[in-house]
């Protein structure tokens, strides 16, 4: 391996930024990834700040952030470069520009962009699991070697500085093992109430204590309702608090009225489920037998 491991200096590493609370183990993982020069793969529930992390790393290390958003139709090639043949064909038809110069029609993608910048950058590959199953495999070489070859121009684009690569995944799909082996992996846990309070303080520094208490209690209550398909997450809680403040809701009413519920629960089914639960509508499905305790005996 030609890569040199940088001596780890805690003082120069990533330490979190003002608007982003980072847990110790996450900060460790980031620094390990930076030092080992491997991509950092971040998984976790939606809304636990996976995407924000890249921004925070960029801010804290004072680097530019390049974001490559992955969609279900994204191909690995697009991140490297696109050869705009259609434009070239058009130009040749109407005699515009120098068609002989293929370079003109090669457009670098986000990954390519991150390679050729003169300053080291942070590259975020967002929601990699959205793409096809083979997508990560197609990027193995490029992420490993930080270079790729353009056959059309017989050029090799190599990274001037190895970018810090952060990859996020919502765990919609498993990623291939070969890809995983090359990454540093971190799973962001859903924050416990204490951690959550710290996060909220960053976003709403002057929140009334009682409002926060009530809102948090309601929030964790909602998360624990069984059979909710899309559990409300951190970002939704922050939006909700904003709505509560703007709406001037009295803290005493939060638990009873559940105001602005639509901010927390985004699915109709979830709202129905919740209402069913709250009104104690238990559907009795046992006309003949009522002893539910016996139900434990399964064979």
């Amino acid at each position: 391996m030609s890569k040199k491991v940088r001596r780890y200096e805690a003082s120069t590493g990533y330490r979190g930024s003002e608007d982003y609370i980072v847990s110790d183990d996450l900060r460790n993982s980031v620094n390990i990834a930076i030092a080992l020069q491997k991509p950092l793969l971040i998984k976790g529930e939606p809304g636990t700040g996976k995407t924000m992390l890249a921004q925070s790393i960029a801010d804290s290390l004072d680097k530019e952030l390049i974001i490559w958003n992955i969609k279900s139709t994204t191909k690995a090639q697009e991140g490297l470069y696109v050869y705009d043949t259609v434009q070239r064909l058009y130009d040749s038809q109407f005699g515009e520009g120098d068609v002989a110069n293929i370079k003109k029609y090669i457009k670098l993608g986000k990954l390519g962009e991150a390679f050729i910048t003169s300053e080291p950058v942070v590259l975020l590959i967002d929601e990699i699991d959205k793409a096809d199953l083979e997508f990560p495999n197609d990027l193995l070489w490029e992420l490993d070697q930080m270079s790729f070859y353009i056959p059309e121009t017989k050029e090799t684009i190599g990274a001037v500085h190895r970018p810090i690569v952060v990859i996020t995944s919502n765990a919609e799909k498993e990623l291939p093992d070969a890809f995983l082996r090359r990454c540093i992996f971190h799973y962001i846990e859903f924050p416990d109430p204490e951690g959550m309070e710290r996060i909220i303080k960053v976003h709403h520094p002057n929140l009334e204590k009682r409002l926060l208490e009530q809102a948090m209690e309601t929030f964790y209550m909602l998360r624990n309702v069984p059979n909710i398909q899309k559990k409300p997450s951190t970002s939704e809680l922050i939006d909700w608090l904003q709505a509560l403040v703007v709406g001037g809701i009295s803290p005493n009413r939060i638990k009873q009225d559940l105001p602005f519920l639509g901010v927390l629960l985004k699915k109709n089914e979830d709202l129905d489920t919740l209402l069913n639960q709250l009104h104690g509508k238990t559907q009795s499905r046992s006309p003949n037998y009522a002893s539910s305790s016996l139900n434990r005996y399964r064979y």
Partner: peptide, 8 residues
């Protein structure tokens, strides 16, 4: 854990 484990 960060280096060796690849899935939660």
């Amino acid at each position: 854990r960060a280096v060796l484990v690849k899935t939660e």
